[in-house]
Design a protein around this nucleic acid. Sequence first.
DNA 1: GCGACAG
DNA 2: ATCTTGTCGC
Length: 323
Amino acid sequence: MKITYNDESHATDMIETGGTLDVDLYSYFYGLVRQIPRGMVSTYGDLARALGDIAASRACGYMLSINPDPEGTPCYKVVRSDGTVGKYTHILGEIEKIRRLERDGVTVEGDSVNNFEQIRFKDFETDFPLNALRNEQERVRSMVDLTDDFDASRVAAVDVSYDDEYGYGAMAIDDGGNIEIRESVQEVRFPYIPGYLAFREFKFIKDLAGNFDGVLLIDGNGLLHPRKIGLASYAGVMLNIPTIGVAKSLLLGTVSDNWVHMGEEKVAYVINKNTIVSPGHKVSLGSSVDLVKKLSHGKYPDILKVAHNNTVRLRHEKQKLMS
DNA sequence: GCGACAG
DNA sequence: ATCTTGTCGC
Ligand SMILES: [Mg+2]
């Protein structure tokens, strides 16, 4: 895996420097797909495991769907875990996928591959890049501090929308009635994987909120995360700013009396079915709930909506420019 | 067979 | 997240 920092500093200096982990998972994944020998197949799940986490299975399907080089990177060799052929982006659809498989000597009966288990390639050469990213999350999690240390006189929100190549980030800063918009458009080489959102979106937050000093609302979770280090907490630690996660759906956990629990621990609060609050960094769970309740009037907070609308506007402007 | 797993 | 090639467990 190619892990690059945006400076020469040691990892533990990343808080001071704002250094960013920038993993090109697309290229790594296409490299795995190219390892599948002629006459063999793999599955979305096996490729996800070769990346380091079965949670990436759907992301594998997504990355194949945007495969820029169908001749060099044989996405037709990737089938479903039950042996059925699955989808293929082509005028002929899965007919073309079957044609390419049979050209390799893989026979298909009905919509399933024959001798599936025998031709299922599993010997990927990989160093499981997602394992390293989980380690990075553990490292940052140890620096999360949910003690109140914020100034709520300035509140801002960030969000990002996407096309297949770029992310369109926007930050809305409420400076007491006046709203300032900042924008950041960047290439994206990391897919959405549940539990790994930070490795797709953090670079936008870093670019937009690098020297912000109020409370930052982030579209996603903080403490409410499989490893207790969602995007909002990750960004808060990396940028050393107070953050709160506001998600539009529940990632995990059990809800009772509007409180979200992971095991015995209270990790988030459900304001409504589209507004789930969890602390990010430098803000306690209770203060996060109080502040977002005050901003939201029981609905999804306006400032987040403004940020989101601007990401959509940006994307449409860019796409209009391209056409 | 249906729902889940931020975006 | 967008017009979206999954997989697992209940
Ligand atoms: Mg978003």
